[in-house]
């Protein structure tokens, strides 16, 4: 039987809410680690120097070719065999962060490749160094391409963190399971947990929309010349690149 009383009771249970907080913190921290690793890997991967591009390609291949669950278990349970002992939080952050980084690397690389060659050249021609060109000219433009798929991977990440429950990370799913073992309200408590995930992903959806609008502001502005229509075509092409990337 469905127990409404229990449902409403667990809806504001501090133990579960704290678990949701841990899920959110874990997702944000993994995203931050992933963005660092991902940007670095993307830039290395695009380097002409094989000593940089090959290791980056290997990292991306390895992380994307194996399940996160297996990676987490290897890091937490397997590495101690080699004398590397990481606690639950370290293992979760490294596992999820490195995995996220590999996916983000490909997204960031696609974003940078979508910035026309002429933008690099113009930046160099006004005396910017390679690093300045990337930071001031290329990455801000790549953001427009990067944000939609990045938002989607963060949405996935919010849910993927639940895998860390397997190595006993005290996030939302783990706490839900613990609670069920003492309270036996399986459906009610799981539905509450599902609602928490839903709230987090929905709020993120709104934030993502705002970010997308922000980074495409130079393209959303109204035209004041018929001649500008022609300039639209390259962007239509970029949008297509983006869509096809998204679909992969």
């Amino acid at each position: 039987m469905w127990d409404w009383g229990a449902f409403f009771h667990y809806l504001h249970n501090t133990y579960l809410l704290t678990g949701a907080g841990v899920t959110l913190a874990l997702s944000l921290a993994s995203l931050a680690i992933g963005l660092c690793c991902g940007t670095l890997a993307a830039l290395m991967r695009m380097s002409r120097n094989p000593l940089l591009s090959k290791p980056a390609a290997f990292y991306i291949w390895l992380m994307r070719g194996t399940p996160v669950l297996v990676q987490l278990i290897i890091i937490y349970t397997g590495l101690p065999q080699l004398g590397i002992r990481l606690n639950v939080i370290e293992s979760s952050l490294i596992g999820l962060g490195l995995n996220e980084g590999a996916y983000l690397a490909e997204i960031i690389r696609a974003g940078i490749l979508a910035v026309p060659r002429g933008q690099f050249e113009a930046a160099r021609s006004v005396g910017m160094t390679h690093a300045m060109t990337m930071r001031i000219i290329v990455l801000p433009q790549a953001m427009r391409i990067i944000i939609p798929p990045l938002g989607n991977t963060f949405n996935s990440l919010l849910k993927t963190t639940s895998l860390a429950s397997v190595i006993s990370m005290e996030e939302l799913l783990r706490r839900t399971e613990v609670l069920i073992q003492v309270q036996f309200k399986v459906l009610e408590i799981f539905i509450v947990a599902a609602l928490y995930y839903l709230v987090m992903t929905t709020i993120w959806g709104f934030i993502q929309e705002r970010l997308e609008a922000h980074f495409s502001r130079s393209h959303a502005a109204p035209k004041d010349e018929a001649g500008a229509e022609a300039a639209l075509q390259p962007n239509a092409r970029i949008e297509k690149v983006l869509l096809s990337h998204d679909a992969q």
């Binding site: 002429g118 021609s125 910017m128 000219i137 130079s218």
Partner: peptide, 22 residues
């Protein structure tokens, strides 16, 4: 070299204005 390059101004066939800037 980037510093020295500032002694030249360059104008391109395709303009290459920074698309995200006014």
């Amino acid at each position: 070299v980037a510093v020295q390059r500032r002694q030249f101004g360059m104008v391109f066939q395709q303009f290459n204005l920074f698309a995200h800037m006014t």
